[in-house]
Amino acid sequence: MMTIAAARALRDGARCFVGIGRPSTAANLARRTHAPDLVLIYESGTIGAKPGTLPLSIGDGVLAETADTVVSVPEIFNYWLQPGRIDVGFLGAAQIDRYGNINTTVIGDDYRSPRVRLPGAGGAPEIAASCREVIVVVKQSPRAFVERVDFVTSVGYGSGPGDRARLGLTGRGPALVITDLGIMEPDPETAELTLTQVHPGVAPAQATAATGWPLAVAGTLSTTPEPTAAELAALRDLNRQAGP
């Protein structure tokens, strides 16, 4: 449901900077269902990739072979991402906080002596800064949804309203946080992530229990429409091609 909800969030024709894993699956699902003209951009420099099978990495040969153009890594960041040419940045997270700040660097208080060393930033800080908007896809648990992230790898809304403008970040920031339980959106006044939608069969209390801060719940809470047969078939097809 998380992947399908993420795919639905991508409008046809959008230019989408895609990370590997669930974001890539969701973006490819969108391209095969409602958004055939979605432009997939991977940080390896492939612009307009149209993979027939799901890539395991951001630099698989199928991305280069099917792309409109392949550019260097400095070019993808400097010419395409930095000036705001990309509509949507798709990110994952190890931790995310109530203002949508993301940690993919270390778990623990001491950077020099971390409890868990994570892969690090990659392209995420600048994707979070410069894409017109950001969609975060992450499985919901109190360990992942924390009051304060241990390390700010990528900025969401900082410490609250106005922080992005103060920092000079050009993009709008996280517009949607899509989890396995529902969808959160930033409150227009407080910038705090607020539960606005639950997936079928999920009670709001499940979402609040899986969040490490007192999660605000919108007054009118919608329910994600059930997956359609076409979406399920396209997703099965993608996963089957990805192999066991």
């Binding site: 960041f77 400097n78 930095q82 660097t105 950077y111 930033a121 800080p125 600048e126 800064a129 410069s130 390390f151 700010v152 790898t153 990528s154 900025v155 900082g158 922080d163 920092l167 000079g168 970040l169 050009t170």
Partner: peptide
Amino acid sequence: LRGYVGTDLVAQ
């Protein structure tokens, strides 16, 4: 570049 602003990488 436009980058790193607001992240904890700057301090480390």
